[in-house]
């Protein structure tokens, strides 16, 4: 099992993701340069946090056209596991792999702190190891995390259980106070219709050892490993 971490110019979460997968999880992990078109046989593609291409134009808008993204989009469309954290989420949306937009935080401030997430769907490649009823404590660090989409499309996500993570209090209660950026319905992470692509604003890769303040983020990595180990031999 191999993890591939994409590095765009301006990525700053690529080493966090690499460290989580390679040293904490103990899996083979490679960096994938944005100018390359090869995914080097990776089974999981991570789009890391940061400020790809300086966030010029809109967050994620330029990264979407990089050579590596052509391959990532094809990989995702053939059922490959792709996860985007923070800026990676923004790239996934700009690429059209996930529906919606991430706007400037409603209060205009950059927010960096721990949040609690309620998992709304445990039956995904990214959440199957998160115990029912457990909120996970992971950090956020963003200025453009305000999830927005047309009401009909949000309803569609909700109806199909594609809202995977929601900002909550530590007991899993969804409140306005727990919403750090103004996101509709407290949405922190969503998946595509097929369920193989997940984007989330928080950073589970920065909460993988207790010395970091929380190791709850490791559950997201464990889930992907568990999914890949147990999935039927014939992949999509």
């Amino acid at each position: 099992m191999k993890f591939g971490v994409v590095t765009f110019p301006g990525s700053n979460g690529d080493y966090d993701s690499y460290t989580a997968a390679k040293f904490v999880l103990g899996k083979e992990t490679v960096f994938l340069w944005h100018k390359s078109a090869s995914l080097e046989g990776a089974d999981v593609i991570i789009l890391p946090g940061g400020f790809s291409y300086g966030d010029y134009l809109r967050s994620g808008a330029i990264a979407r056209f990089s050579p590596i993204m052509k391959s990532v989009i094809a990989f995702a469309q053939s059922g490959g596991i792709v996860i985007g954290f923070c800026n990676g989420f923004q790239v996934l949306m700009e690429s059209g792999l996930l529906p919606g937009a991430l706007m400037r935080n409603s209060h205009l401030r950059f927010r960096h702190r721990f949040v609690y997430l309620k998992t709304e769907n445990h039956n995904t490649p990214f959440t199957n190891m998160i115990p029912e009823g457990k909120t996970i404590k992971v950090p956020i660090a963003h200025g453009d995390g305000n999830f927005y989409n047309f009401q009909a499309d949000v309803d569609e996500l909700e109806k199909n259980s594609k809202v995977i993570f929601r900002y909550s209090d530590m007991n899993g209660k969804i409140t306005n106070e727990a919403n750090p950026n103004g996101s509709l319905n407290n949405i922190a992470g969503i998946s595509n219709r097929e369920g193989n692509v997940l984007g989330m604003m928080p950073h589970p890769e920065r909460a993988v050892e207790s010395i970091l303040g929380s190791d709850d983020g490791l559950l997201v990595f464990d889930s992907m490993v568990n999914y890949l180990v147990n999935k039927p031999a014939k992949s999509a």
């Binding site: 134009l57 809109r58 808008a61 056209f65 700009e94 919606g100 937009a101 706007m103 927005y148 989409n149 047309f150």
Partner: peptide, 8 residues
Amino acid sequence: KLLSNPII
């Protein structure tokens, strides 16, 4: 395709 984001 590039300059605007048609969603918003």
